[in-house]
Design a protein around this nucleic acid. Sequence first.
DNA 1: TTGAAAGCGGTACCAT
DNA 2: ATGGTACCGCTTTCAA
Lengths: 234, 234
Amino acid sequence: MATVSYAMSDSGRLSKETRKRILDVAEEMGYIRDGNASRLRTGHSALIGVILNTVKNPFFSELVASLEMAAYDGGYLTLLATAQNDPVRQKKLLHSMISQGVGAMIISPVHGTSNDLLAATARRKIPTVVCVRDLPNQERVFVGADEMKSGYLAASHLIKNGHRSMTFLGGYGSTSTWTGRKDGILRALGEAGLPSENCQIRAGTLLADFAYETMRWGLLGVSCAAHDCRLCPK
Amino acid sequence: MATVSYAMSDSGRLSKETRKRILDVAEEMGYIRDGNASRLRTGHSALIGVILNTVKNPFFSELVASLEMAAYDGGYLTLLATAQNDPVRQKKLLHSMISQGVGAMIISPVHGTSNDLLAATARRKIPTVVCVRDLPNQERVFVGADEMKSGYLAASHLIKNGHRSMTFLGGYGSTSTWTGRKDGILRALGEAGLPSENCQIRAGTLLADFAYETMRWGLLGVSCAAHDCRLCPK
DNA sequence: TTGAAAGCGGTACCAT
DNA sequence: ATGGTACCGCTTTCAA
């Protein structure tokens, strides 16, 4: 029993021939080591949990692709689930993943995430990374874009090209993503000496789909109100 | 010990108050049952493994989204990985998933998949579904489109709209997908009394990206050679 | 109605 | 260099 384990993990404790004999037999009978039993004993997991809002949005599917490849390179598998804008579902998923013994978590939190979401991973010392949308006022590791800067760059681009009015369709209001981009836009307007009224600001669920389509065209949620802009979808 | 287990699974063996007391304490200390240990004992897993070629292609990301939602509704989590057109990687992934104790597998096999891929799941009686691309001459469950019919419909559409020549860019040649679509196109040409030379047939790795872009435009790998077709990308 | 104990498949310590 | 054994957290049988 123990010897087989030593053979599989190549601990160097066994003689060349004993090890080879064991591996040969294992190969022949199609043996695959039970990673769960292993984790149960050692506490080391080969699973990384990933919770995103959706995976249909190309931004997120590219993210999934990259995460999965990085995980594979590190010898991990990804447990993927989507929270569908539902904080309750998000929490259930996180608990399910902990139940499955994930060794680490990557979460892009939904709007309305409660402050205690990460308590479960924190208590168990499961390394957790928050991405895309931040969780303010919490102890966490965050990876994401500088939303403020992106809004600023987008608005500046429009202004530089002679546009004086624009519309901001950022999806859900009062998220850190939305607020950051909006602030960036307003800053750009201010620096150009334009009144903030020149940017129509819209937020809400119904606009999310529109914004999504806009994002697909590479405009990051900012759409130009002038109908002859070469960068905007027809 | 045993009593806690009974409380969690609500077997009805415990008195109302004992159960409630246990659940309260569990809640308070943030207890989450270890699904792996459970699986180890019972053999029942809450994991469904999914192996696709890629997840960047919108066709597959929509598939992932649907699979994940269905899994969630059934109380399962999805273990997702991409084979990246690499049969070796595909096999390693499958073994990793078995090692993680998946209860079922869903695979869209890569081109060049060896015949013994599913031997590992078969031996362990892990229910396995092959999708999108078929594995001919094997005992398996397959779910996918009628490729022949889709090629036929696409070519018929072009012919009906007055086009007499076309190009088929189907990506990798000699896959069941490619062959099916090609045969459908040729059948449509035949029925219209057109020679098969009227369809340029191209296959190969370099064309895969082109075909992918074409698919994004909703043309399912069939592109019209006439440059004024309203349906084709500009 | 409750609890003690064995065992799932590994790993790691200890002894041989 | 090798194998016996306890234990990881849970479920299930059996006994109390």
